[in-house]
Design a protein around this nucleic acid. Structure first.
Lengths: 247, 247
DNA sequence: GTATTGCCTTCCACATAATGAAAACGTATG
DNA sequence: CATACGTTTTCATTATGTGGAAGGCAATAC
């Protein structure tokens, strides 16, 4: 077709997921010609791909603007995936007690292609009305993401760096060691929209970081408070990790 | 290729999503030959498709058993989809207050291809350790699903029925009218693993049910209690619905 | 130790099925 | 009403995906 196609792989599938990725970036609904240009595919090809994806509800087309966006079926698939994810099942029983002792919102996050995805949460009474739910960020932007990216394979760490502009990238590279070794990491109110949180890794039987446990922090948390909360998180993470044999 | 292919649609994409659907059913990891048989495709074809999907992390292959399961990328896509879903954004601010006044877990559910998918939740202190998170059920099995399926287009209602065995299906068909007209529906402890809940529809500007708001019920809830909780839910649903112009 | 089974993976000739240029359609804009 | 923009369809060409058969690689049986 065009690109350096990976061996024994279907170009059509590659193009379809390329479109899904483009749709997952930027505005919720995007127009055909724009997608064609960004993907490097011709307009009719993109149209056919999108039509096929619409048929499966992986993509939906806004009837008035005829623009395309991700469809509800992705949510169903994800739910199925997450419902059977061992790490989530292992952590789930600890989340409510954690929330109740800490008093703040508790999150479970995983690393996906350089991004942190917050896949489970138990809301505390903090945070007011804006819950900022269903979050996806470049991994190094949040404490949970740093915990995960720094402990992942070099390949995954590279992917995490690839989500960044060059200046932030260099800053991140220098902190790899620090992030990998710290028992917990905290982001204390850097940007206003990134809420501050503490995160600890959840290690499986073979020592791999398969998820992160994170807690929202109150506005100006002392180091002692952060350490205390991190202790609670770490205890739960260890307990859950023990029930997970490996990978 | 084989099937009654829909007009102007790519068979390869159709086969790829067919595999994703098969992977979303049954055990978390499934073997190649089984998937080939169930899909009606030949083994090499399935292998190529899966390999292509693995490359995109939509599917992952267990390194020891070399079996295939859904991959983490579906979670990332879903999060992106849900994060931009207007109904979720509209409902989010009401969920914490709702949880605090009701005192039990509150859910937001949507209808996807005949299934209820619980896409947001605010946990109360009820329920003990088993949170039963990331749920997907045939729509008519839960109160939230009934609310949604009964109010959906005939096509979506049909899909909901298609998820059922024949005996349950006939029973469901008779209750369409009842489910559509009731201001709220409750499942009061039928099967033990299906927790009882009350659900109300969330209607957008054009009167379409775009989501359901549901609350977990205590073991033996009186009709009065159910009605009270439903009232709280309905009020929030109306308030959120007002901020949504249309579909 | 060797044979057998079951499964995943690769190879290759063939024909289906995806592709891109161009044209038609529909709809908003001046 | 004319123009411009974006979506959708058509159609010939050929690249691309397909399926049969063979090759690996474990685990289990003999």
């Amino acid at each position: 077709m065009s690109e350096p196609a990976a061996r024994g792989t279907l170009g059509t599938v590659r193009n379809a997921v390329l479109l899904l990725n483009l749709l997952s970036e930027g505005p919720a609904y995007q127009q055909l010609t724009d997608l064609a240009e960004r993907s490097g595919l011709t307009v009719p090809t993109v149209h056919r791909l999108l039509r096929s994806l619409v048929l499966a509800d992986l993509v939906e087309q806004d009837p008035t603007s005829s623009r395309y966006g991700l469809g509800p079926e992705v949510a169903r698939l994800a739910q199925r995936y997450l419902g059977r994810l061992p790490s989530l099942g292992a952590l789930s029983p600890y989340l409510l007690p954690l929330r109740d002792t800490i008093g703040h919102t508790v999150h479970v996050a995983v690393l996906v292609r350089g991004h942190v995805v917050y896949v489970d949460r138990v809301d505390g009474s903090d945070g007011g009305l804006y819950r900022d739910t269903h979050r996806v960020h470049p991994a190094v932007e949040t404490a949970a993401g740093r915990v995960l990216a720094a402990r992942a394979d070099p390949e995954a760490w590279r992917q995490a760096l690839d989500t960044l502009p060059l200046d932030q990238r260099q800053r991140a590279e220098k902190r790899l060691q620090e992030w990998r070794e710290a028992p917990h990491l905290a982001t204390t109110g850097g940007e206003p929209d990134e809420p501050s949180e503490v995160a600890v890794p959840v290690l499986d039987g073979s020592g791999r970081a398969i998820a992160a446990l994170a807690a929202t922090l109150p506005p100006a948390a002392s180091d002692e408070l952060i350490a205390t909360i991190a202790g609670h998180l770490a205890r739960a993470a260890r307990a859950a990790g023990r029930t997970l044999s490996h990978g």
